[in-house]
Every structure is written in structure tokens, then in C-alpha cells.
């Protein structure tokens, strides 16, 4: 079973910010909140998991890949087993909704038939099949986030990383999105959600890790 493990990880930026000696495990099928104020190091942790940043010391284990031994060529392979959802959705604005989801399947070499089947399935799961020919900018924030979630799920990742996924949404839509993550987790996909919204976190009985000045508590 795939999991994510931080072993005494220290990773800092030039300005001295970052995280220090972080030790934690995200177990298979687990839902984990990563909380803390802005600048506490939440995004740094997500970057380390995606290997867009490598630790100064310690190591990060993501499935079978370890940050100490990973080659540049393997980084896309690490990311393909992770689904990412961002605060600002990060959809490809020059493509329609269908193509946004199909893109992650194309890059992993799926056949056209399988791409079509999976993309329609994902669109149906987030309830936006009817908007497949529209561009992201034609959709509301909540709808864009649903598409981002559909894209994140398309490659059957073992974990979903969500960086402030409700940050740009109204409370009602945020609740819907959280509920969607809950469903995803119940189906067996681990979720690591970074958020500074304590009220939202308080509504769920999932494990929480708190980040303060680059240190992980909890």
C-alpha cells in the first residue's frame, strides 16, 4: 500500500523560511488536514511531496519514490500517482473542460477510447458532463474546482493533495467541495488537505497536523 512519509525533513528557502525536521506519515486511505497560518510551510510540504522542491536534509518517501534517490526523469512519474487540487484551480484556460481532464490521461499514454470513457465518467462524478465543451473561464469558481478535482482523480491517484481548495469559494460551495473530498476518501483515496480555515477543519473528525514557524505538530 502506498503512503507518504517525511523523515526529519528540513527544507528552506533563501529567505530562511521553510520547514524544519518534519516527521509524519500519511497512511493509505487516510484523510489528513494540514493547518497553520499563511507562511507556516503548508505549501512547502506539498512542494516536497510533488518533488518540485527537494529537502536540504532528511527524506520524503512518496509511494516507491524517495527524494534522496530520485532522478529528474522520474519526477513526472511521481506526480502521475498524485492528484493535485489548488486554490486557484489551475485549469488550462486555452482548452475546454473535456480536454482539461483528458490531458492527464493523454500524457500517461491512454488510448483514445479509454480517455473518452474515463473523462466522461469523471465529468459525471462531479456533475458537470453538460459543461464539457465550455472553457474554464465560463464556469463558476465552484464548478472550476469540481473540474480540478475530476482532473486530479482521472489517473486513479493513491493520494489527492489539496492546497487551500476552498480558499476562493463561498462557504456554501466550500462545504460542497469538502463533502466531495470526503466521498473521494471514502472510496479509498488518501487526501492531504492544506488549509488555514480552522472552522472548516473543526467540522471533520480527521487527523490534523499543525504547522507553526516551519515546525510540524500533531
Amino acid at each position: 500500500m502506498k503512503k507518504i512519509q517525511f523523515n526529519a525533513v528540513t527544507a528552506t528557502y533563501k529567505n530562511g523560511e521553510g520547514i524544519r525536521r518534519a516527521d509524519f506519515v500519511l497512511n493509505p486511505h487516510e484523510f489528513l488536514f494540514l493547518t497553520g497560518p499563511s507562511g507556516a510551510g503548508k505549501t512547502t510540504i506539498l512542494k516536497l511531496i510533488l518533488m518540485s522542491m527537494l529537502p536540504d536534509s532528511g527524506d520524503v518517501q512518496v509511494g516507491k519514490y524517495n527524494s534522496q534517490h530520485i532522478s529528474k526523469k522520474e519526477i513526472p512519474l511521481v506526480r502521475r500517482q498524485i492528484g493535485c487540487v489548488f486554490q486557484d484551480f489551475r485549469l488550462l484556460e486555452d482548452r475546454n473542460i473535456y480536454e482539461n481532464i483528458a490531458f492527464v490521461l493523454r500524457i500517461t499514454g491512454h488510448r483514445e477510447k479509454s480517455i473518452k470513457r474515463k473523462t466522461f465518467k469523471m465529468l459525471a462524478e462531479v456533475g458537470l458532463s453538460h459543461k464539457r465543451n465550455q472553457r474554464p473561464q465560463q464556469l463558476s469558481g465552484g464548478e472550476q474546482q469540481r473540474i480540478a478535482i475530476a482532473r486530479a482523480l482521472a489517473n486513479d491517484p493513491f493520494v489527492i493533495l489539496a492546497d487551500e481548495p476552498t480558499g476562493n469559494l463561498d462557504p456554501e460551495t466550500a462545504k460542497d467541495i469538502l463533502s466531495l473530498f470526503k466521498t473521494i476518501n471514502e472510496r479509498g483515496t488518501a487526501v492531504l488537505m492544506a488549509t488555514h480555515n480552522q472552522n472548516l477543519v473543526a467540522q471533520y473528525a480527521y487527523r490534523k497536523l499543525e504547522l507553526k514557524n516551519g515546525r510540524v505538530f500533531g
Binding site: 513526472p76 489551475r90 488550462l92 484556460e93 490531458f103 492527464v104 500524457i107 482532473r151
Partner: peptide
């Protein structure tokens, strides 16, 4: 868009 493509695992 390029940054996003990288994050979703495009080579």
C-alpha cells in the same frame, strides 16, 4: 499552463 502541465505529471 506549462507549470500546471508539469504538476500533473507531463514529461
Amino acid at each position: 499552463a506549462i507549470e500546471t502541465m508539469k504538476l500533473v505529471g507531463a514529461k
